[in-house]
Each structure stands twice: as structure tokens, then as C-alpha cells.
């Protein structure tokens, strides 16, 4: 297979990723034996517990030595080791194309991170899926761990252009039937949506036991709202126009952004969802610490 150069994953990134692990401490629910612990009892060598026999249990699992000593039927269970699935949700809406102070736009930043994470997951023989969405699902790549699968993902990321309005909640709602197995859900977005609606859409995933990581990507200027005088702001998603003097609302904008991120952080903490805010000027590698 000839050497292909991908835009969002570079050789130096691969070298750096070799030092990272993905989900080694996480309990996963795979159907292949693998390097991740599973909630299911299985045939691994890791003893889990003794459990009293119940009708229907496999008699092969009865520990006869215990029966000999206690005259009772106990089953000796072992932990099952399996592979893991990582589901990437990348926001490709028009707002993700915004770039002012950062070296790249938010979609590129998200694509860099998604590409690296996909490589990291597949390199450990875990499966990764990718959903590119705006107000609907643009593209869906089912979980896979092959190089071909990775190639498809990386190619898809390179071909994406920011556009259309965003609706993360709708995308999550529509993607739910497509994901068969629970795993790790990583959402890369600028989250210009109502936090309550986002978490309402996340609830089905959380009920199924998904590990959810919300990675909030913003351009630094979206936080600082720099001074640019009287300007006509054109919404990149809706083309809505609004004339605003930045001096007059700068402080209010910062307060509103502070309130918005605090709401996301509070709701995430209440549901044991991981939430991280990053800007496009920061390195995305620091986010991998959150997946150890």
C-alpha cells in the first residue's frame, strides 16, 4: 500500500501518539477478545468472584471443589477482556469554519484531533466510528479498526467543508439507532446550542452506559470578543445580520460566554460527562490525557 499523506495526521503526530493510551482503564463492552476489561464474565484468566448457582447457569462453570467443601453449588466467574468502540461526532456546521485569532479554524482543529484519535484507537485494535454532522448527519462511518477504515475516515475529514446550520441535539438523536454497542462518545463542537437540548439528546447514550467526552472548541476571539467598533455581524450559519458596536456589548458577550460554558460544565458534571474547553491556539494533544 503506497504511503499516503493525510492532511490531519502527520508523521510527527504519529510519533507523539505512540506515547498515549486510549481507554485502558475503561470498562468496555466488546464482542472480540481484546485488551480492555469487560463487565461481562468470560473466559479470561482474571478471576472475578464466586456466585451462587441459579437455574439456567452453565454447569461447566460450577466450582466443584467449593461444592465438595460446602455442599453448595457456586459458580466461579472470570472477567471477560474485550475490544472497545469509540464514536467520534465532529461538528461540520458553518460556525466551525470561523477563524480569527487561531492558526486554523475550528473544524480543522476538530479534524486534527479526530484523525489522531481515530489513528490511536485503531492502532490498539479498537474500533472507531465517525459521524460528520451539521443539522443532520452528513456522513456516518460504522465502527471499524482496519487500516482501510482509518483511511476512509481520514479522507472524509479532509473533504469536509464547514457549512449549514448546526443542531448537535438533532444529530445525536439521529445517530443513536446507528450505534449498536456502547462505548466512548467523543463530541467535537463549538456548542453554539442550548445546553439543555444537548444533554437531553445525550441522555439515551448515558442511559446505555456510554462514556461521553464533550470537547468544546472555540476560536480565542470567541472568548475575548475583541474590539472592532461598529460592525455588521453576519451569522455564518443562518446569514442573519446584526449591527452591533463591540465596545458596547463586549463585556456582556464575555459574561454570556462565561455563563454558557458554566452551564455546560455544570450539566456535564451532574451526568458524569467529561467536558473540556479548548481554543484553536492550544495543542490538541493535551486532550488525549482525558482518554487515558
Amino acid at each position: 500500500m503506497p504511503e499516503i499523506k493525510y492532511k490531519f495526521i502527520r508523521p510527527e503526530d504519529i510519533r507523539r501518539l505512540s506515547r498515549y493510551e486510549f481507554g485502558v482503564k475503561a470498562l468496555v463492552e466488546g464482542y472480540l477478545s481484546g485488551r480492555h476489561r469487560s463487565r461481562e464474565r468470560g473466559a479470561s484468566i482474571e478471576f472475578k468472584e464466586f456466585r451462587q448457582y441459579a437455574p439456567g447457569d452453565d454447569l461447566a462453570l460450577v466450582d466443584w471443589r467449593v461444592f465438595a467443601r460446602t455442599d453448595r453449588h457456586y459458580l466461579k466467574t472470570f472477567e471477560q477482556e474485550t475490544n472497545m468502540e469509540c464514536h467520534l461526532f465532529v461538528d461540520c456546521s458553518a460556525s466551525m469554519g470561523f477563524q480569527e485569532e487561531g492558526p486554523i479554524n475550528k473544524l480543522e482543529y476538530a479534524s486534527f484531533f479526530a484523525a489522531c484519535l481515530a489513528w490511536l484507537v485503531t492502532s490498539k485494535n479498537d474500533r472507531v466510528s465517525l459521524q460528520l454532522f451539521d443539522d443532520k448527519i452528513r456522513q456516518f462511518f460504522e465502527p471499524g479498526s482496519t487500516r482501510r477504515h482509518l483511511h476512509q475516515i481520514l479522507t472524509a475529514l479532509e473533504q469536509q467543508k464547514a457549512g449549514n446550520p448546526t443542531s448537535l441535539a438533532e444529530a445525536l438523536k439521529r445517530a443513536h439507532p446507528l450505534i449498536k454497542r456502547k462505548g466512548t462518545l467523543v463530541v467535537l463542537s463549538d456548542f453554539f446550542d442550548e445546553p439543555e437540548a444537548i444533554f437531553k439528546a445525550l441522555n439515551p447514550y448515558l442511559h446505555r452506559g456510554f462514556r461521553v467526552h464533550l470537547l468544546h472548541i472555540l476560536d480565542p476571539s470567541e472568548l475575548s470578543f475583541p474590539e472592532r467598533g461598529l460592525s455588521r455581524f453576519v451569522d455564518m450559519e443562518t446569514n442573519h445580520r446584526l449591527v452591533v458596536h463591540t465596545q458596547t456589548i463586549r463585556e456582556a458577550w464575555q459574561q454570556e460566554m462565561r455563563r454558557h460554558t458554566q452551564t455546560l460544565r455544570r450539566l456535564a458534571a451532574g451526568r458524569q460527562v467529561d467536558y473540556a474547553l479548548t481554543t484553536t491556539t492550544e495543542s490538541w494533544f493535551k486532550l488525549f490525557d482525558r482518554f487515558a
Binding site: 453554539f192 472592532r228 455588521r232 453576519v234 450559519e237 443562518t238 452591533v244 456589548i249 456582556a252 454570556e256
Partner: peptide, 18 residues
């Protein structure tokens, strides 16, 4: 009526602030 245009990620927050 004719200030410089500026493409912004989302004016929803701006609208809310306004």
C-alpha cells in the same frame, strides 16, 4: 446602516445579549 461586515460564528448569542 453600512458598517463593515464581519462573518461571525453565531449571532444567536449576540441577539440574546442585545
Amino acid at each position: 446602516s453600512n458598517p463593515p461586515r464581519f462573518a461571525f460564528s453565531s449571532t444567536a448569542f449576540l441577539q440574546k445579549i442585545m
